[in-house]
Design a binder for these strands. Structure first.
Lengths: 291, 291
DNA sequence: TTTCTAAATCGGTTTTGTCGATTGATTATA
DNA sequence: TATAATCAATCGACAAAACCGATTTAGAAA
């Protein structure tokens, strides 16, 4: 049993397809087949069921995969530890962000990179669900998003700040004199909204439902920059957290009246995984930069 | 980085001597040197300091060894899990026992083996310290001993029963009419005692000290069966937990007066290590057999 | 100094991981 | 129903690497 074989096995488990797994591992399908077989021989139990040309995990494979993953993780944690030891001269930080919190990351990123220019970054934008899935697959070190309803036991949470939900309009708006606005008033306006996958959209549509209101949504779109372009024309309005347009000069945000009309930004990471020194330093800088 | 290399590294760390480590691993010293070097190259940091012809761990090696050990453990836990899955048809149980609790293990062993004849056993007798060291090196699954003063965080403890400290004499003794006996009376008798390494001896000599008594110890010996042979001659007495001579017909135990003159037998095992199904079954049978 | 010991290094052998091509068997398609 | 496409297993050949014994290097002991 070698780490190489465990990695092969885990990739095959993930994709449930030897050909694709082999390709993802940059080895031939023949090699993967042989190595899996060799592992099974050593363990004296099949890890995959071969049903025709399809494969599924056996019970043994399912149980074993937990330990295989942990073994692989511990080894890579050890490797990471040594890299960190090297005074942040190396290392990679993978962060997932919901678009609304874009400016929080970019500000910290610029600051951090000037102090530690050798640290690599991978910034992934996506919906909360997408990011959480990636976090669970060890593809991200940390994600920055709004609070989730279901808090999971294997996650660490750190609250950052709260931001009010707001009606977002063009700067040349007739609503400019308003300090706040009600959901009722909003339901009379033409709206362009982020698509259903975005947690903010889910959040706000529940609020409308509760108050028996039917908003006038004429556009749904899954790209926020494009959405903002549309809003700037003045023909539509949208609803976002205020923090989303922090750096947008041509847009104007009017907080929405009512309780629970705020969202909490938080950092989410995995418990019981070695936290990279570079990530720790970056998050520290990020948090301090908020003040 | 492969598990093979991690195992090599850990053995070298343990012995701090490449030649001996290689021999323990049944490989040549040349191979070990090369594999360690290769690992160091990959990690881009030396794991050992080469001070002359002596080696010591570097800080990096010290830190890395924790993860290396965990990685190796997780893999072998996974392997063990699969063996267990095989309905206790295979597997090995390694138990450490202090001699005093010999009969507890032997009784359970006989019972268990008739139900699961294919399970292998390794029974190691030793002092508490020796056994605990072996437990920490993953050479034992569980140990059966009396309570330790310092309870460690990475151990699981399960209390079994208490047994009084007792003066042990030959069955043909003039003391036979006594129901209990005081430390003072004992200090007048000729004693043969287990050697200083045994926790019972440490326990009882502290009790004598507290009461300003000086026992008349004429023999110290580090083998309990031999000690018992001597006691049977009637020329000496000794002090042991009553349970030690449970199966000895030629010996007689008189409980010692005073508070805290009992000891608690317990099972100790490692937390956060996969518990073998066979071990679990054996311990269950052992505990139920006490009732 | 000489002797001894332990790690590093060198060259050669064996093992094993890998590949491409092929086979056999199942699923999808015309 | 026949045909094409797909996927895992297998085979033989090759290259990589793990391994060994012998030798070198150098610190420690006598």
């Amino acid at each position: 049993m070698e780490l190489r074989q465990l990695k092969y096995f885990l990739k095959a488990k993930e994709l449930l397809n030897f050909t694709e797994a082999a390709s993802a591992l940059y080895i031939s399908q023949s090699t993967l087949s042989q190595q899996i077989k060799q592992l099974e021989d050593e363990l004296q139990v099949p890890l995959f069921n071969r049903i025709g040309k399809r494969i599924t995990l056996t019970e043994a494979g399912e149980l074993f995969s937990v330990y295989a993953q942990q073994s692989v993780n511990k080894a890579s944690d050890g490797l990471q530890l040594l890299k960190d030891l090297n005074k942040l001269e190396t290392g990679k930080i993978a962060i997932g962000v919901t678009y609304a919190l874009r400016h929080v990351v970019t500000k910290a990123l610029i600051l951090f990179s000037s102090e530690y220019p050798k640290i690599q970054f991978e910034i992934i934008f996506g919906t909360s669900q997408e990011l959480i899935q990636k976090l669970n697959h060890f593809q991200l070190d940390v994600i920055l998003t709004f609070e989730e309803i279901a808090s999971e036991a294997h996650f660490k949470y750190l609250e950052l700040f709260t931001s009010p939900m707001a009606l977002v309009t063009s700067s040349e708006t007739s609503l400019k004199n308003k300090k706040t606005i009600s959901l009722e008033e909003i339901s009379t306006l033409p709206l362009a909204m982020p698509a259903g996958g975005f947690s903010t959209t889910q959040f706000i549509s529940k609020a409308f439902e509760k108050n028996n209101l039917h908003p006038n949504v004429t556009i749904e779109i899954n790209d926020i920059p494009t959405l903002l372009e549309l809003i700037k024309t003045g023909k539509w309005h949208t609803i976002l957290t205020k923090t989303t347009i922090e750096d947008e000069k041509d847009l104007y945000a009017i907080p929405i009246k009512g309780e629970n009309m705020t969202r909490t930004a938080m950092l989410i990471s995995l418990k019981e995984v070695y936290e990279k020194k570079a990530v720790k330093a970056f998050l520290k800088m990020l948090v301090e930069n908020l003040k």
